[in-house]
Design a binder for these strands. Structure first.
Lengths: 365, 365
DNA sequence: ATGTTGCGTGCAATCGATTGCACGAGCTTC
DNA sequence: GAAGCTCGTGCAATCGATTGCACGCAACAT
């Protein structure tokens, strides 16, 4: 028995081959195999078709079906950076929502420049995706206009636009930063600075506004703000440098996300500024493993997985029942207190070099 | 001017609509638009076709083309866990290799049970993917058999099978663990234990073998081995418990990956065992942000991004020039020394509670 | 002047599933 | 007993691009 005659099936099974084997028409086979249409066919025929399909190892050709119906059961997801755990967690949520609904996920990494966005959308739309999930949106995004113009159901996740042109699933960024500031204020901090994310994206803008609003309602001044131009560690470090240069008496920093906080932490470590001893620090996102840094970062937990799932659910809803108005879902966030924030020393320290001995604050450094 | 008459194009542009506008046959249009066939057409016609296509906003329907040609320019990628940074970094590499080659990436999360694998492959193959990248392979994997039986070009990444049935891109796991052991031995450690990954996957097995071989060539005993049944933090913690229960005089642990090391670290912290003061620890993978844990983990750097890229390149090679024998690419790894490993104290300590004061080892704990 | 070669296009089949319509048989109803 | 209905199935068009083959024309060789 050679390899060749193991499977005497020369070509793949199609509706036609099954129909031929049974002496019925291929449309009958199609109906028997389609749960929606099956009721129109005699049970006996259905049974024979099912068995023959099984025997031939038939698998429905989604490509051919897509061509005929115009639906691909494909969802495109565009993220700014696949290697960023925040976005891969969102992807995980999307995947979870799609699984079992016979939708598949086409993933595209927009890359750092974000310049090739239109090209990427083009490629996805060219594949006739039924819908798009964008995790890359800026506050007023031409890519969104493009998708909307194409009449492709589109859902934004994590970042939303200023105006609700497309359905969006976001975290409560404003309130989240409020929680962080309330926490720091409660610990006695008054001179709190903010490292903001890019103003061009909603998270950067809303968290900055949250900072300002919370500072004002706490009766504090909200002037110590440096906005980073990207959510990168290096940007966090240079923002921290700027903060300490302008306002050396700062006792706490609320960063716009965890990566910026990490950058600030690096800078502080480099400069020998103790955290939390001299300066408290908070992040935003509670990304995976951020609890393991030294010191463990106090941060705002954002339900990335749930956001991804909600976005996918919303998109599927829009695909299956079109014509609905855009909807905004704002998921709650929570404060996670860890070790990077603590109460201020009794009074204000004007010279931070007089803080606790750095070898106690930065052991093994 | 209402929205409606902005674009008087009722239906999408197709080859036929362009052909009609120009009074040529649609096959001529197809050839004029296809770089491979263009040379057979009069330059003037090509020009007119190109312009008309532009005017109508024509976009080739990949679905229809796929149906005719049987090629989808789609690659399926199956990962065990999207939320794990190791795999999302691999994905990033795959994406990088695919970008600009007009291939797209269908991502599927096999999920923890790994039971639905066949189902997932089915779904992807049903979409007529041109090839598959599996990051989920066990040492002898029925899913691989399934893919091979389907004659779908398949490349394994990160994990390989025992026999080279499918092309694979892996890291040099054996040598990597050798580097870790050599490092620990050089620091004076002699009673080194190993937390192994699952024996069912190549990384678990090869790193364990690497441990044994390196210990033997260093003239040390390679008996202190506990294999975890998964690459989870919790598994690392319970393996560590077992190690300290069986061999309390252990001075170093080489973990099968970073997550297992983190689990061990948690356990040690809980028990008040200082790292690296009392016990040195090494990980494997150098996953993102692992440098930020306390203490920063000494580990083996695995080029995940490059592995993903290499796997995608290899797959594209196999798709475009089929019939080649399977190929194994083993990427080099490097030792990254950080703070979780240090030289042993002068002599062996039988009772680890007599180590350095724990408040110095675990500040702010 | 006829035969040959080559080039640019047109023609039509093809990929495989879907679906509106029609047809015929069996059944009810007045 | 004829008209009308239901039900199961067949028929054929359709989705849009691709491609082997053939045809017609022009230039060149005989």
């Amino acid at each position: 028995m050679t390899l060749m005659d193991e499977k005497p099936r020369p070509k793949a099974a199609t509706l036609q081959t099954i129909a031929d084997a049974l002496g019925v028409h291929r449309s009958t086979v199609a109906r028997a195999l389609n749960a929606e249409e099956r009721h129109r066919i005699t049970p006996d025929v259905v049974k024979r078709v099912t068995e023959e399909a099984e025997r031939q190892g038939y698998r429905r050709d989604i490509i051919a079906a897509s061509l005929r119906t115009g639906k691909s059961r494909l969802v495109g997801v565009i993220v700014p950076d696949l290697a960023n755990p925040v976005f891969s967690t969102i992807l995980d949520g999307v995947s979870a929502a799609l699984t079992g609904r016979s939708y598949s996920m086409l993933v595209a990494d927009a890359g750092v420049p974000l310049g090739k966005q239109a090209e990427i959308v083009d490629a996805l739309v060219g594949r006739r995706v039924d819908g798009l999930i964008l995790a890359t949106a800026m506050r007023n995004d031409p890519t969104v206009s493009f998708c909307l113009g194409l009449k492709v159901p589109t859902v934004l996740v994590n970042r939303a636009e200023d105006t609700l042109r497309a359905s969006s699933v976001v975290a409560d960024d404003h309130r989240g930063m409020g929680l962080a500031i309330a926490h720091l204020a409660e610990l006695g901090h008054r001179r709190i600075a903010h490292i903001g994310g890019p103003e061009a994206v909603s998270t950067g803008c809303l968290r900055r506004q949250g900072f300002q609003d919370a500072m004002v309602s706490a009766g504090l001044g909200a002037t110590r703000i440096v906005s980073a131009d990207s959510y990168a560690r290096s940007a966090g470090a240079s923002a921290a440098r700027q903060i300490f240069a302008c306002w050396p008496d700062t006792t706490a920093i609320a960063a716009g996300n965890d990566l910026l906080a990490l950058g600030a932490l690096e800078y502080m470590r480099e400069r020998g500024i103790g955290c939390p001893g001299e300066v408290s620090l908070t992040g935003f996102n509670d990304m995976p493993f951020i609890d393991l840094v030294d010191p463990a970062l106090t941060t705002i937990r954002v339900p990335q997985h749930e956001m991804g799932k909600a976005a996918a659910d919303m998109l599927l809803g829009a695909i299956e029942g079109p014509g609905r108005p855009p909807e905004l879902q704002r998921l709650p966030v929570t404060l996670v207190v860890r070790s990077s924030s603590c109460a201020t020393a009794s009074g204000p320290r004007e010279d931070r070099r007089e803080g606790l001995p750095s070898d106690l604050l930065l052991p093994r450094a």
